[in-house]
Design a protein around this nucleic acid. Structure first.
Lengths: 130, 130
DNA sequence: GATAATGTAATTACATTGGTTACAGTTTTT
DNA sequence: AAAAACTGTAACCAATGTAATTACATTATC
């Protein structure tokens, strides 16, 4: 998303994005699809195709990016069901889901305060001081 | 930890803890060691051994439990290094680490507000309304 | 000395994830 | 109309991480 933010006005193909993170274009395309579904980018096929941001970086929050790309709770629960014989086990999952929701909302509030433009600015600052 | 909170005053062996979550005692013991290192519990060997809470549930926060057990950042970074030819790639890791720190602190602030006693109370409430 | 615990190493099984290849579908360019 | 440059997607492999399991040395109590 940071690279797309720099190349704001033209399409950028998955092959070039893949180069920037040393991976395979298909890996990138899988992520691009999630970003599309979240309405953050558009992609065009054919020559001069690729992906573009739908909004200016000032109007994209890290919360949106994270929600698009990272599903699942803030902390993991153990895979198997607790024993129903145990007075804790019967109810702990429900209680911990509420806790995870609450923690997730706190995380979202924080990430809502950070925009893609903020990230780009910090990237540029590191760049100039290096 | 919830079970240990209920059994506040006597030691509880890993084999019994394992039964409550339908898993193997060794899996439990690996987690117990992390909780010990964080100073949250003590364990005794020999007959009538097992683990006990070091503090009352009112004085244990979910932040402490999470920090003991769940290492690592709030969101994952991709495994391989970004290209240094890319103006974003050179600096994005540093910037994203700062962002992850900030998000992690927000999460910790929230989990600091929830104690093990709160969790036990909610477990009991679900219990009585079921 | 028998018993009931922990600590820990070694191994297996399984799930997740990234990487890769292959190819069909879609635009644009010539 | 054909070639070229893209995306979308399926299929498969490799690597990694994690839980489960077995085994055993160690420690403490009775």
């Amino acid at each position: 998303m940071a690279v797309l933010g720099l190349e704001k006005d033209h399409c950028y193909p998955s092959t070039r994005l893949a180069e920037t993170v040393n991976t395979n274009p298909v890996v990138i395309r899988r992520i691009l699809i999630e970003l599309q579904e979240a309405g953050l980018i558009s992609t065009l096929r054919g020559p001069h195709g690729g992906s573009v941001l739908n909004r200016r970086p000032e109007r994209v929050t890290l919360r949106e990016i994270r929600n698009a790309v990272e599903k699942g709770q803030v902390f993991g629960s153990h895979p198997n069901k607790p024993s129903r014989k145990c007075p804790v086990g019967k109810n702990i999952n429900k209680v911990m889901m509420e806790v995870a929701d609450r923690a997730g909302r706190a995380l979202e509030r924080e990430l809502d305060k950070i925009t893609l433009a903020d990230v780009l600015r910090e990237v540029r600052e590191s760049e100039s001081s290096a």
